[in-house]
Lab assay of single mutants.
Amino acid sequence: KKYKVVEVKENKDGTVELVVENENGEKKKITLSKEELDKLKAGDTVELK
């Protein structure tokens, strides 16, 4: 499934919390490390299994 990044929030521990949404409007929260996030920004599309 493809999800669009709608919100990006940095946590104090250096991880980043993303809120992503698919075309049905379903939202998910995922947490990434700073390194994983470096290639993402709001409006990008991510694929989740």
Rank of each mutant, 00 (worst) to 15 (best):
K39D: 14
E26Y: 07
K41T: 09
N11S: 06
K39S: 10
D13E: 03
T45S: 02
E35C: 13
N24W: 14
A42P: 15
G25E: 01
D13S: 02
K4R: 08
L48V: 15
K27M: 12
L18A: 08
T15D: 04
V16Q: 03
K4T: 10
T31M: 10
N24R: 11
E7C: 15
K27N: 03
I30Y: 05
E21G: 01
K49R: 10
K9Y: 10
L18E: 00
K39P: 14
G14W: 01
I30F: 06
K29M: 14
N11F: 08
E35F: 07
T15A: 03
V46R: 01
K28H: 15
K4V: 14
L48F: 02
N11D: 03
L37P: 05
E23N: 05
E21S: 05
N11P: 02
T31Q: 08
K34D: 07
L40Q: 04
L48N: 12
N24K: 11
E17G: 06
L40P: 15
L37Y: 14
E21A: 07
N24L: 12
L18F: 02
E35G: 14
E17H: 09
L37T: 15
E17M: 10
K28V: 14
V46L: 13
V6T: 05
D44E: 10
T15R: 03
T15F: 06
L40E: 01
E17F: 07
K9Q: 10
Y3F: 09
L40I: 15
E7V: 10
E23Y: 05
I30K: 01
K2L: 10
N22Y: 04
T45N: 10
N22T: 07
V19C: 09
K1H: 08
E23D: 08
D38C: 13
K29A: 11
S33T: 08
K2C: 15
L18M: 07
G14D: 03
E7P: 00
T15C: 08
G14Q: 02
K34Y: 14
K4A: 06
D44I: 06
V19A: 03
G25P: 00
T45M: 07
E35R: 09
V20I: 11
N11M: 11
V20Q: 00
K41L: 10
K41E: 13
Y3V: 10
N24A: 14
D13A: 01
K9P: 00
V5S: 00
N22I: 06
G43R: 02
K29E: 07
L18V: 13
V6A: 02
T31F: 11
V46W: 00
E47P: 01
K41H: 06
K49F: 00
T31G: 03
S33A: 13
K2H: 08
K2M: 11
D38R: 05
S33L: 14
V46G: 11
E23V: 08
S33G: 10
E23A: 07
G14R: 02
K49L: 09
V6R: 02
L48S: 08
E23I: 10
E23R: 03
K2A: 05
K2Y: 08
V6K: 04
K28T: 14
K12N: 14
E36W: 15
K12S: 14
N11W: 05
L48H: 12
K4M: 11
K27F: 11
K1E: 14
V8I: 12
E10Q: 09
G25A: 02
S33Y: 08
K9V: 12
K29W: 12
E21P: 00
V6F: 03
E23L: 06
E47I: 06
K39F: 07
K39G: 15
E17I: 09
E17D: 11
I30W: 02
E36R: 05
N24P: 01
I30T: 01
A42D: 08
K27V: 11
L40V: 15
K9R: 12
E47Y: 02
N22H: 09
K41A: 11
G43T: 04
G43C: 10
D44W: 00
Y3P: 06
K49Y: 00
I30Q: 01
K29H: 12
I30P: 00
E7S: 10
K41V: 12
K28I: 15
L32A: 09
E10A: 10
L37I: 13
E10S: 05
V5Y: 02
T31E: 05
K41G: 07
K28L: 15
D44A: 07
A42T: 08
V20K: 00
G43E: 05
K39E: 15
T45I: 10
D38H: 14
E23F: 07
G25K: 04
D13P: 00
N24M: 14
L37D: 05
E36Q: 07
V46A: 01
D13M: 02
T15M: 08
V46S: 03
G25I: 00
K41I: 10
K39R: 09
E21L: 10
K29N: 12
G14Y: 01
N11A: 07
V5H: 00
I30H: 03
E21V: 13
A42Q: 09
S33K: 14
L48C: 15
K1V: 14
D44V: 05
L48W: 00
K29G: 06
L40F: 14
G25T: 01
V16A: 11
K28G: 06
D38Q: 06
L40N: 04
V6P: 00
E17Q: 07
E10G: 04
K4I: 14
E17P: 00
N11K: 05
E10V: 07
K41S: 08
E47W: 01
E36L: 09
Y3W: 09
D38G: 15
T15Y: 11
L18P: 00
Y3N: 06
E17Y: 09
S33F: 12
E35I: 11
K4Y: 09
I30E: 00
V8M: 13
T45V: 10
N11Y: 07
D38V: 10
K2D: 08
V8D: 00
N11Q: 09
K34I: 12
E7M: 08
T45C: 15
L40T: 10
E47A: 01
G43K: 02
T15I: 05
E35H: 13
V5P: 02
K27G: 03
K4G: 02
K34Q: 10
Y3R: 04
N22E: 08
V19P: 00
E10W: 08
V8W: 05
V19K: 03
E21Q: 05
G25V: 00
E23W: 06
V5W: 02
V8F: 07
V20R: 00
E26C: 15
N22W: 10
E23K: 04
T31S: 09
K27E: 05
G25F: 04
K34P: 09
K9T: 11
E7A: 08
L32K: 03
N24E: 13
K41R: 11
K39C: 11
V8S: 04
K28A: 08
L48P: 14
V20L: 07
K1L: 10
N22C: 12
E21M: 08
K34S: 14
N22P: 01
V5N: 01
E21Y: 04
V8E: 04
K39W: 06
K27T: 13
N11G: 07
V5G: 01
V46Y: 00
